[in-house]
Design a protein around this nucleic acid. Structure first.
Length: 719
DNA sequence: AACCCTCGAGGTCA
DNA sequence: CTCGAGGGTT
């Protein structure tokens, strides 16, 4: 639960200085917590009026007792946490990412997939748009009545940062759209970028001012848009191309290229290399033309985007997981570089995994200096792929080798290949350690009992006696989506662990009490002061109450990430219920075990991991100690999705005439329904087309709701 | 077999 | 923030 408003009615001038100090401190902590909820979780727990009241009283206290106006006060901090961050904006329509492809064949497959999905005849016309994929950062502009009212970055796709003031300084972004056909509300999406010329000029200025240079135009554009002082943004000549839209009150066109034309007529910039293509050959031709001309464009692009032109078809095609089925980003090959592998280091992960990392002679790839790269796992180094086949023709990777690296997706450095001719004569095959480099325990590759295959990762068997694992688990425990304890970063965990101050999760919550009795107090250490210690303790106190799903996630049970943690929290409701069931489930024949695996999304492997976790004596002790320190919040009821079929299980049977089966399924799922393949007593709705047989009969037998396609559309609307 | 989730990776900027 | 391997679920 969020801290309740504690603002008392006592007039400020009736308080003793001591009372004032205590209340001032309490209010400060409360305001900080509200700020955090508002800015970081986008989940304000008080109204604006209540918040303002808190701040007013906080300030009134300081007016009456000026000694409270310390440099740490929320009113005094220059660039305090509050103003340090951008507000958040929830996108009315999520900003999704695009499916990627590299090879020409993937474009063919993409078009094929779409034809299949639509049941389109081979000769039926199907048009696409093709446009350069600008390498910048995406931005969503909201226009109401033709006026720019807000601008948000992509963020995680659902919630972005409010950069309205900065967007207003971008020359290509009109404050007001022109023309009479501008929809009442229109969210324009596009890319903010910097031209090569402007990028060079900015870096020249940075250099003259003795400031750090930007690595590439994209980073410079991102840095410029995220300036808190919009006058700095204004001094950077950012540009903008529109290519998509979000929330729109009435669509001004029914094709993708029609929309682009509208954008242009509204006064927005649209990339001039956008073409309408009617065949794969034409799409590829345009791709290669753009690739050839890439260096002369004057701005960075990283590929070509194809989109189905007809918006009705886009609608029918819908989405696969997080990207539209109707679009493909055809990326240019990633830039490669050659360098020397100077060493291989092994990191031990939270789950005990031994992760090999390549230490490279620093080299520039695609504008950034790369000195590390992932080597994935033991087999990858040996030249064997996940399913046993050879990769790199079976060539292994050795220390001293000259290697070819790239940045996968232009981001993650990866060792692609070895230049065998340059292999030093004395280079020996790399021997992957069979003991943990952190604790010396055996490190083994477990055999999956069902497939009989060896796990790709080698794991330390040391469990909690392994300091590396213990530290990584602590880091996971305090991380953003778990307990989210501000001020407990990697460095501090390492430091605290080393000194024995915090070695188990529960130690975090007893730290303050132990510190008070300690001879070597935190606040007296080098690099520490009263403030840093106080802030840390305040951050810990703020987490004595925790949401159930966060707690489950924080435990770091293998295979249980955020999603599974939420599933478990929702199913069990309380931690005790989960714990009891998991313990009872140690018997595979038990009802508890059946309950666990019956949860959708929890299969045998995950269930086993959960059972194992709760079986461990030291975990038992940890949980008892932890639960004595923290309060677990009851699970909130899941927000009811506003769709008539949300949460229902639907079965489609017979032949569907107005949509393909896949389409029907995608549609039902989009509306929050589950789609099953067969009728059972768990089924809620059966949609039967002509020719339906046994499933329809069974549905009648069970007395389920049965409807035809028209009935389905009547129920959910035609979307 | 398709899709989804977990986990751990690197680099940049504020 | 983003990627990708591997493995789990359905």
């Amino acid at each position: 639960m969020p801290p309740r408003s504690t603002s008392s009615e006592t007039p400020v001038d009736h308080l003793t200085p001591d009372e004032a100090r205590i209340e001032h401190e309490r209010l400060g902590a409360e305001i900080r917590e509200h700020d955090r909820r508002y800015y970081e979780e986008d989940a304000p727990s008080v109204s604006d009026a209540e918040y303002d009241a808190l701040r007013k009283r906080y300030e009134a206290l300081e007016d009456q007792f000026p000694e409270l106006k310390t440099p740490e006060s929320l009113t005094q901090k220059v660039g305090s946490k509050v103003s340090e961050k951008f507000g958040k904006i929830r996108h009315r329509v999520p900003m999704l990412s695009l499916a990627n492809g590299f090879a020409d064949e993937e474009v063919e497959e993409f078009v094929e997939r779409i034809r299949r999905f639509l049941q389109w005849k081979a000769d039926a016309p199907l048009a696409f748009t093709a446009e350069p994929k600008i390498d910048g950062l995406s931005l969503s502009l909201r226009y109401e009545g033709g006026r720019l009212v807000s601008a948000a970055t992509r963020g995680d796709g659902a919630v972005g940062e409010d950069v309205t003031n900065n967007a207003r300084t971008v020359g290509d972004i009109p404050h007001r759209l022109k023309g009479s056909s501008v929809p009442e509300t229109l969210e324009v999406r596009g890319e903010v970028y910097l031209s090569h010329e402007d990028f060079a000029a900015i870096n020249a200025r940075q250099e003259a001012a003795g400031k750090a240079l930007f690595a590439n135009p994209r980073n410079a554009a991102a840095g410029s848009l995220r300036q808190l002082d919009s006058s700095i943004t204004a001094s950077r000549p950012l540009r903008f191309f529109a290519y998509a839209w979000g929330d729109v009150s009435e669509m001004p066109a029914d094709t993708q290229h029609g929309m682009m034309e509208c954008f242009r007529s509204f006064g927005l910039k649209v990339n001039p290399l956008t073409r309408r293509c009617t065949s794969v050959a034409e799409m590829l031709e345009h791709y290669h033309a753009i690739e050839t001309d890439r260096a002369n464009l004057g701005y960075d692009i990283d590929g070509v985007v194809y989109k189905v032109d007809d918006l009705n078809l886009q609608q029918r095609l819908g989405f696969v997981s997080r990207s539209p089925r109707w679009a493909l980003a055809h990326k240019f090959p990633a830039q490669k570089a050659v360098t020397v592998l100077e060493g291989i280091e092994i990191n031990v992960g939270r789950t005990g995994s031994l992760n090999p990392i390549a230490r490279l002679k620093p080299v520039t790839v695609g504008g950034v200096v790369v000195s590390n790269a992932t080597l994935h796992n033991e087999d990858y180094i040996k030249g064997i792929g996940g399913n046993g086949e050879k990769i790199r023709n079976g060539v292994d990777i050795r220390i001293g080798d000259t290697v070819i690296i790239n940045r996968a997706g232009d981001v993650i450095p990866k060792v692609l290949d070895v230049v065998l001719e340059k292999r030093p004569a004395d280079a020996k095959p790399y021997e992957f350690p069979t003991t943990c480099p952190a604790c010396g325990s055996h490190a083994v590759r477990e055999v999956n009992p069902r497939t009989g295959k060896e796990d790709a990762v080698r794991r330390c068997t040391g469990g909690l006696i392994c300091p590396a694992q213990a530290r990584e688990r602590l880091k996971h425990f305090v991380s953003r989506n778990a307990f989210d304890i501000e001020g407990m970063g990697e460095q501090r965990i390492d430091e605290f662990y080393e000194e024995g101050l915090v070695q188990r999760p529960q130690d975090i919550f007893t730290l303050q009490a132990r510190n008070a009795r300690s001879l070597k107090r935190l606040e007296n250490r080098e690099g520490w002061g009263e403030t840093s210690a106080r802030n840390l303790f305040a951050a810990i106190e703020a987490r004595r109450s925790i949401a159930l799903n966060r707690l489950i996630f924080a435990l770091g049970i293998p295979h249980v990430g955020e999603t599974s943690a939420r599933l478990l929290a929702r199913h069990f409701g309380t931690f005790e219920h989960l714990r009891e069931t998991a313990k009872a489930a140690a018997d595979p024949a038990s009802e508890a075990h059946a309950e666990l695996t019956a949860i959708g999304g929890i299969g045998p492997v995950v269930a086993e991991a959960i059972v194992e976790f709760f079986k461990e004596q030291h975990n038992e002790e940890m949980l008892d100690a932890l639960l004595a320190e923290v309060t677990v919040e009851a699970m909130e009821a899941p927000a009811a999705a506003n769709s008539p079929v949300a949460g229902k299980t639907v079965v489609f049977t017979g032949s569907l005439e107005q949509m393909t089966r896949e389409e029907a399924k995608a549609m039902a799922e989009r509306l929050g329904a589950k789609v099953a393949g067969s009728v059972s007593k768990k089924t809620d709705i059966v949609v039967a087309g002509p020719g339906a047989g046994s499933k329809l009969a069974k549905a009648a037998e069970l007395g389920l709701q049965v409807m035809d396609e028209d009935g389905w559309f009547a129920l959910v609307g035609r979307k």
